[in-house]
């Protein structure tokens, strides 16, 4: 059976972490009147909760882009209508976005909307991972504590940065070691994400490592 072509429209802020301006995915979007899926770009606490359009029920799925916030920031605790989902393409700092789209289902999400969103992203070559509406979704929840540990180990003299990065590349098959990655992507961005997760979880794992705090503080002074 040939895969159904899903039409989608994109609205919201022009600056999206998931889809930078020249991203081919944006080029495939059409008018809202013909869309099966409405994608609302934005994300983050900065602009305030996204206004859910009155005609949301007309779409098979409405996808709200998320930053470090949960979907419930936009919908309220009840999760909003069943066809409303959150999403974020995983991206660390200012590095190019990865192929991963984390698709967030709130408490009342309906399976049809999830399947439709998965089909849309899948058809555009993205890898989709469905998750519940928890801070850090999947990847940041798992990787930020690791970056904090690696930075702390470095401070404590466990090994040099080179030794730690090499160990992860050779011993664990990572494309890049944790410290080189967190530094290349912008250590103050790690600080920002880590702190956002710390606000929710309150565990030492998310306490930004000293190196990240200092870099972020220096950045406040333009350094």
């Amino acid at each position: 059976m040939a895969a159904e072509t899903l039409h989608y429209a994109v609205v919201g802020q022009s600056k999206s972490r998931s889809f930078p301006e020249d991203d081919p995915f944006l080029g495939g979007a059409g008018p809202t009147a013909e869309a099966d899926i409405l994608i609302i770009l934005g994300g983050g606490f900065g602009a305030g909760p996204t206004a859910i359009p009155d005609d949301a029920a007309l779409y098979r799925a409405v996808l709200v882009e998320l930053g470090t916030e949960c979907l419930s920031y936009h919908t309220g605790a009840d999760g909003g209508p069943g066809n409303l989902l959150g999403f974020a393409r995983y991206r660390i700092g200012e590095l190019a976005p990865s192929p991963l789209v984390e698709l967030v289902r709130g408490p009342g999400a309906d399976d049809g909307a999830v399947a439709t969103a998965e089909a849309l992203f899948g058809a555009h070559g993205f890898v989709v991972a469905v998750c519940s509406d928890q801070a850090g979704r999947i990847v940041d929840r798992l990787v930020r504590p690791k970056y904090n540990s690696a930075l702390r180990f470095l401070d404590e003299g466990l090994a040099t940065q080179e030794a730690m990065d090499l160990t992860c590349r050779l011993g664990l098959g990572y494309p890049e070691g944790p410290i080189e990655r967190v530094r290349r992507s912008g250590i103050e961005d790690h600080y920002r994400v880590s702190l956002a997760l710390f606000e929710v979880y309150g565990t030492p794992a998310y306490t930004p490592a000293a190196g990240a705090v200092m870099a972020a503080r220096r950045r406040e002074h333009g350094l």
């Binding site: 995983y90 990865s98 192929p99 991963l100 984390e102 890898v127 991972a129 469905v130 998750c131 519940s132 928890q134 979704r137 999947i138 990847v139 929840r141 798992l142 990787v143 664990l172 098959g173 990572y174 494309p175 890049e176």
Partner: peptide
């Protein structure tokens, strides 16, 4: 914690971070 199914977690880590 019900964040995701095991397969989704592994898929996310591999695609998001490039781990093998």
């Amino acid at each position: 914690a019900g964040v995701a199914q095991p397969a989704a977690i592994d898929r996310a880590v591999k695609a998001g971070l490039g781990y093998k």
